[in-house]
Amino acid sequence: MERLNSKLFVENCYIMKENERLRKKAELLNQENQQLLFQLKQKLSKTKNSNNGSNNDNKSSSASGQS
């Protein structure tokens, strides 16, 4: 039992560490996700602006703050 417990404890520690790692990874990916989302939005609005020319579409105007 003692051995089983220490095995469980080590395993738990390991999973905790692993979870920590996953959490960090998820966080990084999330940041990347945000960035990509932003890029994508920008790109889309740029495309849109160039497609529409001077025609000011109200749906994309909020995302086209910077050029």
Partner: peptide, 11 residues
């Protein structure tokens, strides 16, 4: 762990 793995793979 399971949840996190799913979250990561989704991302």
């Amino acid at each position: 762990n399971d949840r996190l793995q799913k979250q990561v793979s989704n991302l």
